[in-house]
Computed example of a mutant assay.
Amino acid sequence: MQTLHVNGYDMAYLDVGQSNGPPPLVCVHGSLCDFRIWSSVIGPLSKRHRLICVSLRHFFPERWDGAGRTYSITQHVDDVIAFIETLNMGPVDLMGHSRGGHICFRVAQRRPDLLRRLILAEPGGELDATLDPDYKAGPSPLLARFTAAAEKIAAGDVDGGLAFFMDALEGPGTWPRLPPTAKQLLRDNAVTLIGQVRDNRPPFTKADAEAIRMPTLFIGGEKTKGLLPKVLHTLAAHVAGSNTAMIPNATHPMFEQAPQRYSEIVLEFLAS
C-alpha cells in the first residue's frame, strides 16, 4: 500500500503491474468497499496493465467516525481528479463500480482531458426526468432503505445495518451467505454509509450522458435487480458510441462472481 497526498488528504492505493506499456488503469470502488474489493481481478488485469486501485476519502485503511461534511460525491470526484493529476502520467484509463462508477462518470464529464477510456460497472445513481419518464422528485425508495441501514450503524448495530443494506441491494438473506472476508471488508467501511446518505447525489441527466465523449464500456450482471440495470442501459443509450457487456449468472458484484469473464471483457475493451 502507498499513499498520495491530494487535497489535504493522504489517499491510500495499491499499485500493481508493469509500469511500462499502456496507460495505467485507475480503479475506483463503490459503497462500503475499498481498494481490496478488486483483489479477484488484480491478477488477470495486471498481466497486461498497471493497476492503481484507490481507497476514497474516509474508507479503509482510515478509521472514520462519521463526523463532518467531508464525505460527498463532490469531494470524491475532486479527489480522484487531483489524484490523477498528481500521478502525472498523462491520460489514464478509469474504471469504477457502483457509487465509484458514478464518481468516474463525473470525472469524465468534468475532466475528459485526464482520461483515455472509461469503464463503468453498474454505476450507481438515479435518472432525472430527461432520461426517465417515470421520474418522481424526492428521495428514492433505495435511499430510504440505505438511510435505515445507516441509522442502525450509527446506533452501534453494525452487522444489523449491513445486513439491512445488503438485503436492499442483493435481496433478502444476502448477509448470512457472505464469506467472513467480505463481511469484514464491509465492517471496516460501515461508518461511511452515514456519510453516503447525506451525499445529495445529483441524478443523471440526458445532457450529462451526451457530454461523455471518450470510448466508454458499461458492464452489468444479467441477474442484477432494481434500478441499477435501468440506469446502466439508459446511460449507455445516450453515451455516443459506448459498448455494453452483460455477464451471465452475475449480479451487482459481478467482478467477484465472474472474475475471469469480467477481466476478459475489460482487457478486450482496453486493447480495442
Rank of each mutant, 00 (worst) to 15 (best):
A121G: 05
E256Y: 12
R36P: 03
N7C: 07
T234Y: 07
H238Q: 13
N200I: 00
E151C: 13
S98V: 00
G21I: 02
D132G: 06
L115H: 07
P172G: 07
I37P: 01
D199I: 08
F83G: 03
A240G: 07
A240I: 09
I84A: 01
T174V: 14
R63I: 04
P215Q: 14
A237F: 10
V26P: 01
L162D: 01
S31N: 08
R111S: 03
R187E: 02
S72P: 10
L185D: 02
L270Q: 04
K223P: 08
A137Y: 07
K223Q: 14
G101R: 06
R110W: 05
A190E: 00
P141M: 09
I37C: 07
N249T: 04
R261M: 11
M11C: 08
Y135N: 05
T251L: 01
M254A: 03
H233I: 01
K225E: 14
I247C: 01
A67V: 05
G21E: 11
W175M: 04
A168G: 09
A240H: 13
D34R: 08
G43R: 03
H5T: 15
R261T: 07
I219K: 03
D134M: 11
I219M: 14
N88P: 02
P91Y: 05
T130S: 15
R36M: 04
G66C: 03
D93K: 03
I103Y: 10
V239F: 11
G171T: 00
Y262T: 04
C27M: 15
P44H: 15
K223M: 12
W64D: 00
S19K: 13
G66S: 05
W175R: 13
F59N: 07
V197F: 12
E126I: 04
F164P: 01
S40Y: 07
Q75F: 06
V26N: 00
E85A: 08
R187Y: 13
A211M: 07
L87M: 15
A148Y: 07
P176S: 09
S272L: 08
K230C: 05
F204W: 12
A137R: 15
P91S: 12
G221F: 05
L186V: 01
R213V: 15
L118I: 03
M246Y: 11
K206I: 05
H233W: 08
P229C: 09
D159H: 10
N20Y: 11
F146D: 01
S39G: 07
N249M: 13
C53S: 06
T86C: 10
I42H: 09
G241S: 09
I119H: 02
H29G: 10
V28K: 04
N189L: 09
L185A: 08
K183H: 14
V231Y: 02
F59K: 01
R106D: 01
A211Q: 14
D134A: 14
M166H: 11
I73K: 07
I84C: 00
F105R: 02
G68K: 14
L94A: 06
L193Q: 04
A12M: 06
E122K: 02
Y135E: 02
A12Q: 02
H233K: 09
A236M: 08
P61F: 14
F164I: 02
F105I: 00
T181D: 14
R63T: 06
A182E: 10
L127W: 01
R63E: 12
I119C: 05
G17F: 03
V77N: 02
P215K: 13
Q184L: 15
I153R: 02
P172S: 13
